[in-house]
Deep mutational scan, measured.
Amino acid sequence: DELEKRVKKIARKLNLSLDQVEEWLKRNNNDELVEAVKRLKKK
């Protein structure tokens, strides 16, 4: 979905793993995208 695409884009842009992106999003209080990261990690 759109949020998952955004997460992947962030990960690529910042050259981070999904775990690192998740931490980064949590620090930025971006719950919506944190949920998207969790969905991606399950895939």
Rank of each mutant, 00 (worst) to 15 (best):
residue 3 L to A: 13
residue 13 K to T: 10
residue 30 N to Q: 15
residue 22 E to Y: 09
residue 39 R to S: 07
residue 13 K to H: 10
residue 24 W to I: 10
residue 36 A to Q: 02
residue 13 K to M: 13
residue 4 E to K: 04
residue 38 K to H: 09
residue 2 E to F: 11
residue 41 K to N: 05
residue 22 E to S: 04
residue 33 L to Y: 03
residue 40 L to I: 10
residue 15 N to P: 00
residue 17 S to N: 11
residue 9 K to A: 15
residue 22 E to L: 12
residue 31 D to G: 10
residue 31 D to E: 13
residue 33 L to Q: 03
residue 4 E to C: 03
residue 2 E to H: 10
residue 20 Q to T: 03
residue 26 K to F: 06
residue 10 I to A: 03
residue 22 E to G: 05
residue 9 K to M: 14
residue 3 L to M: 12
residue 24 W to P: 00
residue 5 K to V: 12
residue 2 E to A: 12
residue 18 L to N: 01
residue 37 V to D: 02
residue 39 R to Q: 08
residue 40 L to S: 01
residue 36 A to W: 04
residue 25 L to Y: 06
residue 19 D to L: 06
residue 34 V to N: 04
residue 35 E to A: 11
residue 5 K to C: 15
residue 30 N to Y: 15
residue 28 N to K: 11
residue 41 K to A: 04
residue 2 E to Q: 08
residue 13 K to L: 13
residue 17 S to Y: 08
residue 30 N to V: 12
residue 42 K to R: 11
residue 30 N to R: 15
residue 12 R to P: 00
residue 19 D to P: 04
residue 4 E to N: 05
residue 13 K to Q: 12
residue 3 L to K: 07
residue 1 D to T: 10
residue 35 E to Y: 01
residue 10 I to N: 00
residue 25 L to F: 15
residue 24 W to E: 01
residue 29 N to P: 05
residue 8 K to P: 00
residue 11 A to C: 15
residue 13 K to D: 15
residue 42 K to P: 03
residue 26 K to L: 11
residue 15 N to A: 08
residue 11 A to Q: 13
residue 17 S to P: 05
residue 1 D to A: 11
residue 35 E to G: 04
residue 28 N to S: 10
residue 22 E to I: 12
residue 36 A to C: 02
residue 41 K to F: 06
residue 8 K to N: 08
residue 39 R to E: 08
residue 27 R to T: 10
residue 26 K to R: 14
residue 12 R to W: 13
residue 37 V to L: 10
residue 4 E to Q: 03
residue 24 W to A: 01
residue 20 Q to W: 05
residue 29 N to L: 06
residue 10 I to C: 06
residue 7 V to T: 01
residue 37 V to C: 13
residue 39 R to M: 07
residue 22 E to P: 02
residue 40 L to M: 08
residue 16 L to I: 08
residue 17 S to G: 06
residue 35 E to D: 09
residue 16 L to T: 02
residue 25 L to G: 09
residue 20 Q to K: 07
residue 12 R to K: 14
residue 16 L to V: 06
residue 6 R to Q: 14
residue 43 K to R: 11
residue 15 N to E: 04
residue 11 A to F: 04
residue 31 D to F: 15
residue 30 N to A: 14
residue 18 L to A: 02
residue 8 K to V: 14
residue 11 A to S: 05
residue 2 E to M: 13
residue 3 L to C: 13
residue 3 L to G: 07
residue 13 K to P: 00
residue 2 E to V: 12
residue 4 E to L: 06
residue 5 K to L: 14
residue 23 E to G: 05
residue 6 R to F: 14
residue 33 L to W: 05
residue 25 L to A: 15
residue 17 S to L: 06
residue 23 E to F: 07
residue 12 R to G: 08
residue 34 V to L: 15
residue 22 E to M: 11
residue 12 R to I: 12
residue 22 E to K: 04
residue 20 Q to D: 09
residue 20 Q to E: 14
residue 43 K to L: 09
residue 38 K to A: 06
residue 5 K to T: 10
residue 43 K to P: 03
